[in-house]
Design a protein around this nucleic acid. Structure first.
Lengths: 377, 377
DNA sequence: CTGAAAGCGCTTACAG
DNA sequence: CTGAAAGCGCTTACAG
C-alpha cells in the first residue's frame, strides 16, 4: 500500500501508508467476530472452511499483516532448549562465539514470550545431553524447540529423531542432519571456505615461475567441517594451479602435539611457499610451528577461524589471512529461525541455510574483533 | 536475572527468567500510580524529582526493562523522511543498494508506529530537496527525523543546520557532517578500504623481485569517499612496499570517457602489475579498459563496490577482487539508529559509526549477490 | 462452529 | 504534581 507522488522538482516520493488493516477491520467488514478472524488467520481450529476461506481471501486482498507487537504481548510462552558444547577448553576456538550469537538473540527476543534454557555440555558428549532432554520430556516437561549440533554418529541421529517424534521442533547447527526429522539447519559454506583459501593461495604465488609448494593442515577426515574445506581446497588447486604441489598433514585435536612436532621438522627441512589450516586448532599449531621453525614472513600462511591466537598471528604478520565462518552469526540465525517458526509459523526459504565465509586481512581485522566482542581489538 | 544450575552429568544450565518486572509491579511496590512510573521512566515531565529518583532507583535495582512490544502498540507515530539520490542513472552503482537497506528497515519497523517518506532526488541535487523539506516544516508539517547524505558543500551544511534548528533529528550517511548539528552519522571505514586494497596489492606482487608497477584510479579528490581511500592506499604502499611505483589517474563521473581512453592507451604502452580503482564508476571504466587493451588476466585488478558490471568482471577473472563497503547495511543502520533514538531515546555508542569493509573473491561472490538481492547470482 | 469478554504492558488523553 | 480510565491489536480462556 504505497503511493508515489512526483514533486515539482522531479523528486519521486514514496509514502508507506501506516493505517494498516487490523483483525477488527476484517471482522467488521465480514460481519464475523474478531475471534473468528483470529482463528482463521492463525490457522487454529474452530472455524468452518467456508468462513476461513472468506476471511483469508479478504485478508490477502487488503494486505493484512499481523501486528507482531500486539501478537507477542499476550501470547503463551514457548520453551526452547539450546544444547551446545561448553565455551571453555577446546570450545574457546569456536563455541564461545556460537554462545555469544545465542545470547544476542535471546536478548533481542526478550519481549516475545519465549523462555530459553542454555545447556553447555563438555565437548563431545552431546548424546547424554540429548538423552537427558528426552527423559525430561517423557517426565511431562513441556519443550517446544531445541537447538543442537548436527549429529556426528548414528546414536545422536537416533536421539534427535526421538526428540522430533516427541513433538519438539529442532534446528541444527553446523550440519544438515537431514535424517533426524529436524525442522531446519544452519551451516557455513565449507566449499566456499576451501575455494577461498585456495584462491588466495593462488594469488600469493601468482608471479612465481617455478611450481608452488603448499602445505595443508587438513584436520580430521571424519569431521565434515574439516573434510569439506580440505576437499574444496584440493579441487580448486587442481583446476586453477595444477602445477602446484599440495602436501597434506592430517590429524586434529588429540594429535595436535605430534602435528606440531612434525610440522616444525618439515618447515626446517624445506620452506614451502604457502601453508594453510582448514581448522581452528590446526591454525594455532601452524602459527606456533612457523615461529618455532623461524620462517614467519617467508611462508605465506592462511588460518581458519578467529580466536585470540589467530588474531595475534594475523596482527603480527605470521598469518597473511584467516578464513572466517562467523560462528556468532550462524548460531544467532539458528535460534532465530527456530523462534520465528515457533512464534509465527514461518519457515526459512531452505531447510538448510548456507552462510557466507570471508577472508580477513590485517587491514580490516579490527572490525571483526569489535563485532565478535570477546576478541580484544 | 539468570540462575545457573549444574546437572548430574556436569552440564551447566542457564535459565533466562522471564517473569519480568513491569511498570505495574513498580507502581504497586512504591504505592504510586502506574502513570507516574511511566512518566518517571520515560523521562517525561509531571513527576517530582524525589518521586522520579525513587522510581528510577527501584527500576534499576529490580532490573526493569521496558517491554518494547507493549510500548510500540499505543505509541504516537513519528514521521521520518529519507532523502537520498535516485536509484537510477549513476545512482545504480551505489544508491540503489542504500535504498534497499532503507526498505529493509522500514519493513522490519512496520509495527513501531513510524511513518516513513522516501524522497529520491536526481543525483547531485540534495540542496533543493532539503530546502523543500524546510518549507514543509515551516508550513507546519510535523517531521521528527531525517536521513540524508552528509553535506558536500557549505550550502548543504547550512540547510541541514536549519533543519536541526527546526527540531528535526538528523542522521547522516557517508560522512561525518559534524558541523550540521546532526544526531549521528554512519560511514564506511574508508581508511581500511584503502589499506585493504593496498594490502592485497602487496600480496599479488609478493614474489616479484623487480619493483612493482601499480595503477590507481583515484577518483575525485574533492569527494571524501574517493580521496580518503586513495590516500590510505598510498600510505600503506609507502610503508610496506616503498619500492613500488604507483601511478595516479584522477577524474570521476564527468570525465569518465576521457579516463577510459587515457587508460586504454596507458595499458597498451606498458602493462602494470596491478590496477585498482577506489570508486565504483572507475571500476567499470577499469574493467572496460582492461578488456579493450587486451590485458585481462595479465594485470591483477581490484575494483570498488559491487554492481552488475563489477560482479561480471570478478566472475570472468578480469578483476581479482572487489572492495565491498556494504551500502545496504550502512543505510539500514542509519535509519535504524534514527528510529531507535526517536522511539527509545537511545543513542549509539559513538555519534559517528564506522562500518567494516571486506574484500570479495570469486569464491564467495555468490553470497554477496544473494544478500544484495538486486545482483543476479 | 461462533462470539463476548478479559487482559498482555504500556501510552495517551483527561480530570483532579 | 498525581491518578483513574481508555485503548493499542491481538490472544486466551470461557460460554453458548
Amino acid at each position: 500500500m504505497a503511493k508515489t507522488v512526483t514533486g515539482e522538482r522531479g523528486e519521486a516520493a514514496t509514502q508507506l501508508e501506516h493505517g494498516r488493516v487490523t483483525m477488527k477491520d476484517i471482522a467488521t467488514a465480514l460481519g464475523v467476530s474478531i475471534n473468528t478472524v483470529h482463528k482463521a488467520i492463525t490457522g487454529k481450529s474452530g472455524v468452518s472452511e467456508k468462513t476461513r476461506a472468506k476471511i483469508l481471501a479478504f485478508a490477502e486482498q487488503n494486505g493484512y499483516r499481523r501486528n507482531e507487537s500486539a501478537s507477542s504481548l499476550r501470547r503463551k510462552d514457548a520453551n526452547v532448549l539450546i544444547c551446545l558444547p561448553s565455551s571453555s577448553g577446546s570450545g574457546r576456538y569456536y563455541y564461545s562465539y556460537a554462545w555469544e550469537g545465542c545470547r544476542r538473540f535471546m536478548e533481542e527476543a526478550r519481549d516475545t514470550g519465549m523462555r530459553f534454557e542454555c545447556i553447555e555440555y563438555p565437548m563431545g558428549s552431546q548424546l547424554p545431553c540429548l538423552e537427558d532432554v528426552l527423559v525430561r520430556v517423557n517426565d511431562g516437561e513441556r519443550v517446544d524447540g531445541l537447538v543442537a549440533l548436527a549429529p556426528t554418529n548414528a546414536a545422536e541421529t537416533h536421539a534427535l529423531r526421538a526428540l522430533t517424534e516427541a513433538g519438539i521442533v529442532i534446528e541444527l547447527l553446523n550440519g544438515s542432519g537431514a535424517d533426524t526429522g529436524r525442522f531446519g539447519s544452519v551451516v557455513a559454506d565449507y566449499e566456499a571456505a576451501g575455494h577461498l583459501m585456495a584462491e588466495q593461495t593462488c594469488n600469493l604465488v601468482r608471479s612465481r615461475t617455478d611450481s608452488a609448494h603448499v602445505l595443508l593442515l587438513s584436520g580430521d577426515p571424519y569431521v565434515d567441517s574439516h573434510y569439506l574445506v580440505a576437499r574444496a581446497f584440493h579441487e580448486y588447486i587442481l583446476e586453477h594451479l595444477p602445477s602446484a604441489e599440495v602436501e597434506d598433514f592430517t590429524g586434529a585435536h588429540a594429535q595436535v602435539d605430534a602435528l606440531r612436532a612434525k610440522l616444525v621438522e618439515r618447515l626446517r627441512s624445506d620452506v614451502p611457499h604457502v601453508a594453510c589450516s582448514v581448522f581452528a586448532a590446526g591454525s594455532e599449531v601452524l602459527g606456533d610451528a612457523l615461529v618455532e621453525a623461524g620462517c614467519t614472513g617467508r611462508v605465506a600462511a592462511i588460518g581458519s577461524d578467529l580466536f585470540p591466537e589467530s588474531v595475534l598471528a594475523l596482527r603480527r604478520g605470521i598469518f597473511t589471512n584467516v578464513v572466517y565462518k562467523d560462528p556468532t552469526g550462524l548460531a544467532y540465525r539458528a535460534v532465530e529461525a527456530l523462534a520465528q517458526h515457533l512464534l509465527w509459523g514461518t519457515a526459512p526459504a531452505a531447510d538448510v541455510e548456507v552462510f557466507p565465509v570471508e577472508l580477513v586481512f590485517r587491514s580490516n581485522l579490527d572490525h571483526y574483533c569489535r563485532e565478535a566482542g570477546t576478541l580484544e581489538a
